[in-house]
Simulated assay, not measured.
Amino acid sequence: MRKQSHRSRAVLAMVVAAVLGVAGCDAVGGNSAGPSGTKAQKAKPSPTPTWDVSPSSIAAVGDSITRGFDACTVLSDCPEVSWATGSSAQVDSLAVRLLGRAQAAARSWNYAVTGARMADLPGQMAQAATRRPQLVTVMAGANDACRASTTAMTSVASFRADFEDALSTLRESLPKTQVYVASVPNLKRLWSQGRTNPLGKQVWKLGICPSMLGDADALDSAATLRRDTVQKRVESYNQVLKEVCEKDRRCRFDGGAVYEYRFGTDQLSHWDWFHPSVNGQARLAEIAYRTVTAKKT
């Protein structure tokens, strides 16, 4: 019996040793080396994140909203309150939130142009690329819908081609630069809010978004059809922005957040009751910051 017991203990010791060897662990602590050879499991390095939530430089492209048009004085740009790159403490622009006020002044650039349409974006993107920014913000499309008539609006196909061209222009020289894309605002809601103000409607007559704002008080079937046509085109533009951006792993669309934001009278310019006020610019900055700094899209 003693011989059999000794043999059993020896077999058990061999089994334990074999199990510990396969597991690559150490009965005392975990400091022993694992197995070597082709069966060894090599630790895989953590992948570098595709999206950096703290870019160190920003360039902005787009239209009058990014230029702060009508936020400070009537029919004038006011880039210091721009949601993207402005320096105003009342706004805390995306650049200020990401870089800090001192660095934002030196490491952010605004190439947006009042009145610009999507067809102008490739040229603006080429200018922005010369700065080699780590992030480019895009807000464009409202002027493609804001035309003299609904028939003059940019076609959805042309809008897509121009946006793809703009991204390709950036990627030719900056394949790793990130892009934040804001949705086109809800123009019909802006009409609904602004039409309650007599001064705003007078300014509208100077030619601000006639396809939506023309004959502001008209509620007949023709006026309703016209506004609905503009609204559907804006929704189509936003779908294009979403689809094109999804094909670029370093592009983030805001998910329709700007379109869905319910601009009230406090968020609208008290000069034209259509463009964002200083308060509205601050809200746009908040939306952009949330999107850019989100851990996952």
Rank of each mutant, 00 (worst) to 15 (best):
A223L: 05
V61W: 11
L187H: 05
T66W: 03
A128R: 09
R189E: 13
S168C: 01
A285S: 15
K242E: 12
D63H: 13
A116D: 12
S155N: 06
D215P: 03
K39I: 13
A43W: 11
S64F: 06
Y180A: 07
R147H: 00
A112C: 02
L167E: 10
K232V: 08
R97E: 03
E80R: 03
W273A: 12
A102Q: 13
K42Y: 12
T224I: 14
T137S: 14
R189L: 15
S64T: 08
S93N: 07
A128S: 07
L121S: 14
A223V: 07
A116G: 02
A157R: 14
D92A: 09
K232S: 15
M1W: 06
T291E: 08
A27K: 08
L174T: 03
A119M: 08
R107S: 10
S155P: 08
T130Y: 05
Q231K: 01
Q239N: 15
A282C: 01
S277L: 06
A60Q: 13
D266A: 11
L121D: 10
S192Y: 03
V61M: 09
Q103E: 12
G200E: 03
D26M: 01
P35Q: 11
G115Y: 06
A105I: 01
G86F: 02
F274D: 06
A10R: 04
L206Y: 11
F253V: 01
K247T: 09
S32E: 13
C25T: 14
F274V: 08
M14E: 10
V203R: 07
I208F: 14
N186H: 10
Q103G: 02
S269T: 06
G264I: 00
D272T: 04
K232W: 04
A148K: 10
V74L: 10
C72V: 13
A223W: 03
S192Q: 14
R226W: 06
C78S: 05
M1L: 09
